[in-house]
Simulated assay, not measured.
Amino acid sequence: MEQESPLVREVFPELVDELVHLLEKEGERELAICVWDVRMIGECGCGDDFCQSIRTSDHPGGQPYGPGRRCVPLLPSSGDLILDVVYGRIMYIEILGRPPLRRPVQA
């Protein structure tokens, strides 16, 4: 049986709290609700030291998302947070120029 990818909120709870706040501030209520249930499929993998982006859906690299895609730039206190959304589903969380994400301490 294949194991499900972890929820982003379990891996980076502070990030998800911030995303919810910023999305609500931008009037993106549906996305603020949806971000609680996105799964961390993988890291960006670009190797740039300023990038901590998260893939939340399988998607072939270098390929456009196609119809229904929109970009949702947010206004965090530092760096950049940008969501790629396709038909209301968060596909990618772009995290650039921000302090390192912290994982919760496991007991």
Rank of each mutant, 00 (worst) to 15 (best):
G97Q: 11
R9N: 09
V38I: 14
Q3T: 15
I93G: 04
L23E: 03
L83E: 04
D17W: 09
V16A: 02
E94L: 10
Q52M: 10
T56L: 02
E2A: 15
C46H: 06
R29F: 12
R29W: 14
R55M: 10
M1C: 09
I54Y: 01
L81Y: 01
P76T: 00
S78W: 12
P99T: 03
I93N: 01
K25H: 08
E24G: 06
G45R: 07
H21I: 10
M91S: 02
L81V: 04
L101P: 02
E14K: 14
M91N: 04
V20A: 05
E28I: 01
E26Y: 00
Q52V: 05
Q106K: 13
E24M: 10
R29V: 15
S77M: 07
E30N: 12
D84K: 04
G88Y: 00
F12D: 07
P13M: 03
V16L: 02
S5K: 14
E2F: 12
S57G: 09
E14R: 15
R39T: 07
H21V: 12
K25P: 00
M40G: 05
E18H: 04
D84M: 07
V8K: 07
L101T: 06
E24T: 08
G62W: 06
K25T: 10
R9L: 11
P99M: 08
G61C: 10
P76G: 06
R70P: 06
R98E: 07
E10D: 15
V105M: 10
W36R: 15
P13D: 08
R55F: 11
P64Y: 07
A107Q: 08
L83Y: 09
R103Y: 01
I82Q: 06
E94H: 11
E18Q: 12
I93W: 02
L75W: 12
V86G: 07
V8Y: 07
D84T: 05
R55Y: 13
P100E: 07
P100I: 00
R89Q: 14
P67S: 08
V20F: 05
S57Y: 13
I90R: 05
G68M: 02
G62N: 06
V20C: 08
M1V: 13
E30V: 10
E14G: 09
F12L: 03
R55H: 13
F12E: 02
P6L: 09
V38Q: 04
E24A: 06
H59D: 05
D17N: 14
S5M: 11
G97L: 11
D49R: 11
L22C: 00
L31R: 07
R29Q: 15
T56S: 09
V8E: 09
